Computed example of a mutant assay.
Amino acid sequence: MIEYGPDGTVVAGARTVPSEPPASEPARTRSAAFFDLDNTVLRGASVFHLARGLYRREFFTGRDIAAMMWKQVYYTVLGENLTHVSQIREQALGFVAGHTVDEISRIGEEVYDEVMAEKIWPGTRALAQAHLDAGDDVWLVTASPVEVATVFADRLGLTGALGTVAESVDGVYTGRLVGEPLHGEAKAVAVNALAAERGYDLARCAAYSDSANDIPMLSLVGSPCAVNPDGALRTHARSHGWKVRDFRNGRRAAKLGVQAAGATALAGALAAAASRRRSR
């Protein structure tokens, strides 16, 4: 969720975006493009790759994951109610409790260079670059940790990133979230606030996502596009005349579907393990 600082600027995740450009700069563009991250820009889920990087750095044990994996898979297969989803989201970044923001940001950069850079969809990268070349601002808007989203924005030369924010005190994570996870309707709220702050005309803006969860964000803009869409989003896009771009082949799409389910299970296991450690 967008928050405002004492000087009237909008705080976008870990960054502060000036409400007005310096007088020496030309007037900002009135159009922008908003990209989801997981399965839209990146093959698979960023939290899965980050978790593997943290595991290699001994942030948690395989036993922590295995102990809770079956329960999360059970929820995934049989369906999660809103209470389960809320609990998982609130704890999703708890496994970094006690570690510093600088440390996690550094690890995020390392994991990007080691693993994630080569998993960016070339087609989506080209779409983002086309907007940049046209003079548009380009933002990532994702439920992934803002530290991860910021690395992507920096490496790809984008304008900035909005993501889920973990609370920190004196530069150390507390294991709690700041506000709500940036997911579903919350993305639309954040984009609306950012557009008001930056002066974007949403009718001239574009948005890209793979998930039906992002229909609220996609519906805000004049040029919505479904990228590597799930079934529900593909159906919605076709019925509303939205553009569809699919950069997967059949085998790749099936593999990513399995990866997404596994990433959901892994995220739940990580949250549960962190919660268990904090209760000791």
Rank of each mutant, 00 (worst) to 15 (best):
N249I: 00
L256S: 13
T235C: 07
A263V: 12
G184R: 13
L132M: 05
D113Y: 01
G184D: 00
G179W: 06
R57H: 09
G184V: 02
A126V: 01
W139N: 07
V178A: 08
R106Y: 06
N213H: 12
F48Y: 13
M68E: 12
A51S: 14
H99C: 05
P18Y: 09
E167Y: 03
M68S: 15
S168C: 04
A188I: 05
R155E: 14
A66I: 07
V178D: 01
T150M: 04
L156Y: 09
E80I: 00
A27M: 09
A254R: 14
G5M: 11
E147R: 08
R198A: 09
V244Y: 02
W242A: 07
R252H: 14
G231N: 08
G250C: 05
L132T: 14
E90D: 09
P6S: 12
A186H: 09
A212N: 10
R52L: 14
A267I: 12
L78A: 04
G184Q: 06
Y55F: 14
V148D: 01
T174I: 01
T159F: 08
G171H: 07
R234N: 07
A97N: 07
T16P: 04
V178M: 05
C205N: 01
D64S: 11
M69W: 15
A203N: 07
H49N: 07
Q87E: 13
H183T: 04
K255C: 02
S86P: 00
P229I: 06
A261H: 11
L158T: 03
E114P: 01
S223A: 15
M116Q: 11
V148M: 15
L220M: 11
G108C: 15
A237K: 06
G13W: 04
V41R: 02
Y173F: 15
T235D: 13
E110W: 03
N213F: 10
L132H: 03
D38C: 08
G44F: 01
A195I: 09
S24W: 14
R252I: 11
D246K: 02
V101T: 12
T76I: 15
A32Y: 08
V148G: 00
W139Q: 09
P21K: 08
F59N: 04
N192K: 13
L194I: 09
S275A: 13
G5A: 13
E103F: 03
T100P: 13
V96A: 10
W70E: 15
N228F: 10
A14I: 03
D102I: 08
L194V: 10
H236P: 13
W139K: 12
T16H: 10
L233S: 08
L256Q: 14
V96K: 11
S275H: 03
E25F: 13
S279V: 00
G257L: 02
A193Q: 13
H236C: 06
N228P: 04
E25T: 11
D154P: 02
A260N: 12
C205I: 05
G62N: 04
G231I: 01
Y200A: 03
L127E: 11
A117T: 07
T61C: 08
Q129H: 13
R43F: 02
T124H: 01
L233T: 00
A237W: 06
P181H: 03
A271E: 00
M116G: 08
A265P: 00
R15K: 12
F35L: 15
